[in-house]
Amino acid sequence: MLRPDIESGRRRLSFVWLPTLPFFAYTILFLFLPAGAIIVGAFKSIDGGWTISNITTLSHEPYRRAYIESVEVSAITAGLGAVLGLGIAYAACRENTPRWIRSVLTTFSGVAANFGGIPLAFAFIATVGTLGVATTFLKNQLHWDISNSWPHFSLFTKNGVEFVYLYFQIPLMVLVIAPAIDGIKREWREASANLGASSFQFWRYVGVPVLMPSMLGAVILLFGNAFAAYATAYALTSGVVPLVPLLIGAYYQGNVLDNPHLAQAMAFGMFVVLAVMMLLYIPLQRRAQRWAK
């Protein structure tokens, strides 16, 4: 019949996986080969020998600072994005909120989470840039100069980049967490209210623990999302905030040409940071899920 794997057993050499070969070949050619080339290239010197000097160079400036800034921007936007996204998603999904709000929110989140890069940077420049619509409105109508008085906001700094990143981080969180929020049953909220719990207590003892496994996964996803982002920061800061992707990009723009292996080492370093995040995530996830047994 059509399920030979059930009866074939071990004796017959099976070629049943053969039609999946093109997929595996493609993955090797365009995913594993490039990844392998980076790992090998990171440990090569210009004259072809093996070396770890590329990696040790990363611990010096400006590379060290780039990693720190990249991790900071990713962590802050992942954390803020997760909290704000959760709040918005919960507000849209909870009982008594009209159904259409939720469907509008998910549709919009689908668009905004995919709307990144250069256009996003331009939208914010047109809004809160030096000559932006909101900036000039606040200055002329309300006499509030956001760049020279509180909060001393400038789009072209680290805070500015983080502010813009939230535009795709929050919607991603909404998309990821909305299904998990449906798992919080309305009855739980009523039951805890009947037992005299405040809203804070409900979240502290019921809501957050239930959502924790999904929250952790989402934060990792958001971290990786911000860590990989290149175009938005490229258009905003033109190198003022030295993030790792911007430094790598600068090599290929012809600014620095001395050692291509250094760019590969930086890319390898990004791999390492993401791998460390995953390693942190696994025990945390196990802990968060313990109660669910």
Binding site: P34, I38, A228
Partner: peptide, 14 residues
Amino acid sequence: VVPPIVMVVGLLKV
């Protein structure tokens, strides 16, 4: 999980 910037570095090398 592979940042595009990392992907392009590898692709250009290979």
